[in-house]
Design a protein around this nucleic acid. Structure first.
Lengths: 218, 218
DNA sequence: AGCAAAACTTGCGCACCACGCAACTTTGCG
DNA sequence: CGCAAAGTTGCGTGGTGCGCAAGTTTTGCT
């Protein structure tokens, strides 16, 4: 139970002008989180040691902890990035009404191909089954939710910017951010729960629309 | 990163007919979680070892892990109980409209005295300051959110009962539960954030009302 | 009341993990 | 080229979660 860095090397130097040094760092980081995710999904959390992850990423065990301060952090890194991306998109998008901007920021980031494209998965059914059992792990749930919470802060800031509300004294931006993250979590949970898989996009759009409109008893 | 039990000995044998054994068990459990909370609030997470907590509760270190599988779990136990209490109240309350039942279930459980009454706190300001720095700890945030998520499942079930919706195939009950928990978290976060403290009850009522009504841009 | 089974506690031990420290290697820049 | 900054690695340490096998207490039954 030590501290984490997580937000440390979050410089978002995506596109251009990143030297060899930063590029390699980003690669190792990605390799580590991907290896962690893949190994844990196919083997189970307790049967994967940090040593395994480090080895799969071609790096020393000690180096693993220079990037992520725990197994869970590495596994959840992709999710964190997606959620942070929502905040970023919310800041950069056109000046449309808030509840049009939000789905526009959220939906594309949770499209099924966003993840799978880079690292194709052999068998989709086996994969989602693995993800299900992985997320049944309590420690992972905590880490997942924490990632959402981190992004929540960014989203709240973006919402405050858009709506001209006060981040420090007003409840509104935080409430919107929390609701958006809740919608994302709920939609993903429902997706993993249903056996004939419903497209995530539809679930997400539905959840966001309902949250925006209020939740009267049906 | 092992598994946890947490829900194991959650038998809800509150009122009556609990033998000596279960009574003592409940007492030790409470003593442990209270000791954990108090020590960590006043000393900081890293300066409290499980050994300290066990000692403060008059029990062996090994026994600590028979009740809680981690420091964080012990600390968050009270929060978990409160959140689970919401679900319980939602099930047992009178047959009123959902969005009247919800505040009635939530508000009394987060009254300022609910916690303080049993274990009075010397200095309120020092205490909340300690809580603030405690909750700044990432590991604790995760644990806290996870407690909310556990309760969320119960709340969703209660909501499904009340509204006659299908827990397995319908998004609605899960969405309501997630929104309620989000409102609780947001209100508590705001409470800890503001320096001239605003009464939690007002924040919570506000948050719940807004969530129920939708979140149009102000 | 008495006794056997069930439940709980405890000490011991092991595997794992986060991270500080001190070399050593690589990269960036003049 | 050569030096400083940044990154990697091996080692060591303190701490943790939990299985196991006594020992102890509570309970249910007669």
């Amino acid at each position: 139970m030590r501290t984490t860095q997580l937000c440390a090397a979050r410089k978002f130097c995506y596109g251009r002008a990143m030297g060899l040094r930063e590029r390699k760092k980003a690669e190792t980081r990605a390799a580590l989180s991907w290896a962690a995710l893949r190994l844990v999904v196919e083997r189970g959390l307790d049967d994967v040691k940090v040593e395994d992850i480090a080895e799969a990423a071609g790096v020393s065990p000690r180096t693993f902890n220079n990037y992520y301060s725990s197994k869970g952090e590495a596994i959840v890194a992709r999710h964190l990035d997606r959620c942070l991306g929502v905040a970023e998109a919310l800041r950069e998008g056109p000046a449309e009404p808030l509840w049009e901007a939000i789905p526009r920021a959220v939906l594309p980031r949770f499209a099924p191909d966003a993840e799978s494209a880079a690292h194709p998965v052999p068998d989709a059914a086996t994969w989602t089954a693995g993800v299900r059992t992985m997320l049944a792990e309590p420690a992972l749930q905590g880490e997942m939710l924490r990632a959402g919470a981190i992004a929540e802060a960014e989203i709240a800031a973006a919402v405050a910017d858009r709506t001209g509300t006060d981040l420090a004294n007003d409840l509104y931006p935080h409430l919107v951010a929390a609701a958006v993250v809740a919608a994302i979590n709920t939609a993903m949970a429902h997706y993993l729960r249903t056996d004939p898989p419903v497209p995530v996009r539809r679930l997400l759009a539905d959840a966001l629309a309902r949250i925006a409109a209020g939740l009267p008893t049906p």
